[in-house]
């Protein structure tokens, strides 16, 4: 690579540069999930090490803790990488850091959409938007939207979809 990569515009994220990020609450919700899973082996190993006075077990307990820290970093990177942009005719959604993906969905192709909020998501004040089209390989999902933003986006998408409905 003769040219420094940083000076080139990123070809994968072209014209629309005004990406709208999703709420960082999504990262916090995912942290909670991953930590509660990792807490079980950590606490078990640590407790066993303390009770039976095996220092090795305490060292083992630090492994899931380290994994938790690593996951926390990965999750926050991933969540920060999710973004969307409402173009005049299409919705752009990008995600991923190592495995990057950019999806372009014309509004007129929208068949229907779901807004879902689970109990955990509700606690964190986020909702997920799932867009359905007739196409395969275009399962557009947008997690981590604040509920009113999700509702607004849904309204706009439906309105634009109806205005530009082009069948198939």
């Amino acid at each position: 690579m003769s040219m420094p990569a940083s000076e080139q515009p990123d070809p994968l994220y072209p014209e629309p540069v005004d990406w709208r990020p999703v709420s960082f609450q999504l990262a916090r919700a995912r942290w909670l999930i991953s930590w509660s899973v990792l807490a079980v082996p950590t606490l078990a190993a640590a407790a066993a090490g303390l009770v039976f006075h095996v220092p090795g077990l305490i060292a083992v307990a630090s492994l899931p803790a380290l994994a938790g820290a690593l996951l926390a970093w990965l999750i926050s990177r991933q969540v920060k990488a999710i973004g969307y942009f409402e173009g005049p005719e299409e919705l752009f959604i990008r995600r991923g850091v190592m495995f990057r993906r950019l999806q372009v969905m014309p509004y007129g192709r929208l068949q229907y959409l779901d807004v879902t909020t689970g109990p955990l998501a509700r606690r964190f004040g986020i909702a997920a938007l799932q867009l359905h089209t007739a196409a395969v390989g275009l399962d557009v999902a947008l997690p981590g939207l604040p509920p009113n933003e999700a509702a607004g986006l849904r309204e706009r998408l439906v309105a634009r979809g109806e205005a530009r409905m082009s069948g198939l």
């Binding site: 690579m1 994968l12 190592m98 495995f99 990057r100 993906r101 950019l102 999806q103 372009v104 969905m105 014309p106 192709r109 089209t133 007739a134 196409a135 390989g137 275009l138 557009v140 082009s166 198939l168």
Partner: peptide
């Protein structure tokens, strides 16, 4: 007119080779 949508994907190896 039948383009239902487009997506671009790039994995770590692809990223390395641009």
């Amino acid at each position: 007119e039948r383009t239902q949508g487009i997506s671009v994907e790039q994995g770590p190896w692809q990223s390395r080779f641009r």
